[in-house]
């Protein structure tokens, strides 16, 4: 039965959408900024998968090239984000996102 089924690019895309949604949810429910960054990584990975799957569907290499740039951006974001965490943890005992609420109103 499975033999009749073909894996189309949409499968990947739906998986990608699911991964993106999981990442987004994680960012909303986790308090540890490091885990929140990881969730952003999940979201970016989901986009990567979309790019590659679209490229596959279109028969186009540009999708794969785009992934390179996403990778660079992800790396740069992580570096800066982690530096921020380091800087803040120098000054505060706890580093959860909920503690950052001096500024409000």
């Amino acid at each position: 039965m499975l033999a009749a089924v073909e894996v189309t690019s949409n499968w990947y895309l739906i998986l990608s959408a699911a991964l993106f949604a999981v990442g987004a949810m994680g960012l909303l429910i986790r308090r540890n900024p490091l885990v929140m960054f990881m969730c952003v990584e999940l979201m970016l990975n989901a986009v990567n998968l979309s790019f590659v799957a679209f490229g596959d569907r279109l028969g186009d290499i540009a999708g794969q090239v785009s992934v390179f740039f996403v990778l660079v951006v992800a790396a740069a974001e992580v570096v800066v984000g982690l530096a921020l965490v380091v800087a803040i943890s120098r000054r505060r005992a706890t580093t959860t996102a909920d503690d950052l609420s001096v500024l409000r109103g």
Partner: peptide, 8 residues
């Protein structure tokens, strides 16, 4: 179709 001209 992909416009990059490069076919996978």
């Amino acid at each position: 179709r992909g416009s990059s001209g490069q076919i996978v």
